[in-house]
């Protein structure tokens, strides 16, 4: 089951470039498709301009539902004031056209309105933002996703598949109904866990990891921070390098406000900005104990 390169489904013309991260841009996205893919989980496919740096796996975009790039006629009461960040769940560039895929759970004021977006609508985007997952790492790479935390791992998995890299996926959710269909998951080696036992093993991704007979020198995870803390601990105990994609309440998403602080390991009371120093962070750079204690 290990060291088997998996087949990618949608191979882009150009894999995301390496090198230094470019400056993000404001642009608009045209809704091509917006569909429910699981209970409370939606996939939004956007046509975006063929300009600027393509997003790399792990990076995110920040959106407002009002169309256009700037909003000179912005009226505060029309909707939430702040943008909302979403991990890039897929990106394809072919024949001068770019498609951006976002996966979102309909849980809040913005995401409930997102669920009502119809093809032809335009939304405002800012990105790509944040740090990407490193790609030049020892294989096989174990991807671990919890709930809607699967989003960045979809794009990461497709990218790894395109590059012929060996990886496997552990994916968990509370209920089977909230889980993406198997056909939409990247890679050939996939283990599932659900708390209701409807799909895969009954339990959490940690239960799968504990029973896993796979020597993975690299782990990349995204999900609730409690899950990330456990995956970080599991990885450390096995000497695996672990990267996590963290979620926090963002003000700006660009490192301008300092609102998305999470506790940094080392000398308290230092903080990392989830939007700019993250969202992808080496697991050991986070103080998981302090984060868990903060009840965020």
């Amino acid at each position: 089951m290990t060291r088997r390169p998996v087949q990618g489904r949608a191979a882009p013309d150009r894999a995301p470039a390496g090198g230094p991260l470019g400056e993000p841009a404001l642009f608009s996205g045209g809704v091509l498709r917006n569909q429910r893919v699981a209970a409370g989980l939606y996939e939004l496919l956007l046509a975006v301009p063929d300009a600027g740096d393509p997003p790399r796996p792990g990076q995110f975009v920040s959106l407002v539902l009002e169309s256009g790039v700037a909003q000179p006629e912005f009226e505060g009461l029309e909707g939430p004031l702040l943008r909302r960040p979403f991990s890039v769940a897929g990106f394809v560039q072919a024949r001068g056209r770019r498609r951006l895929k976002l996966l979102y759970a309909s849980v809040g004021r913005i995401t409930r309105r997102m669920a009502a977006l119809v093809p032809g609508a335009n939304i405002g985007l800012l990105g790509p933002l944040g740090t990407p997952f490193p790609l030049e790492v020892p294989e096989p790479i174990l991807l671990v996703g919890g709930g809607r935390g699967i989003a960045p791992l979809l794009y990461l998995g497709e990218t790894l598949a395109c590059r012929g890299r060996a990886f496997a996926l552990v994916y968990g959710a509370r209920r089977g109904a909230e889980m993406l269909p198997a056909g939409q998951l990247p890679g050939g080696s996939i283990w599932l866990a659900t708390e209701d036992g409807a799909r895969g093993r009954r339990g959490t991704v940690l239960d799968v990891l504990d029973g896993l007979r796979l020597e993975a020198p690299t782990v990349m995870a995204c999900g609730p921070h409690g899950m990330l803390a456990s995956v970080a601990g599991w990885s450390a105990a096995r000497g695996a390098a672990c990267w996590v994609s963290v979620e926090a309440v963002f003000g700006c998403g660009t490192g301008l406000c300092g609102g998305c602080a999470i506790p940094a390991a080392g000398k308290p009371p230092d903080f990392l900005w989830a939007c700019r120093q993250g969202p992808v962070l080496p697991a050991e750079s986070v103080d998981w104990e302090r984060w868990n204690a903060s009840d965020l």
Partner: peptide, 23 residues
């Protein structure tokens, strides 16, 4: 200055409460 422990932000109607703490 490290600033205040999170949470540091809360969106309000047409506004934003912050407690960054001069990080």
């Amino acid at each position: 200055r490290a600033g205040n422990p999170p949470p540091r932000l809360q969106e309000t109607p047409s506004g934003l409460l912050n407690s960054i703490g001069l990080q």
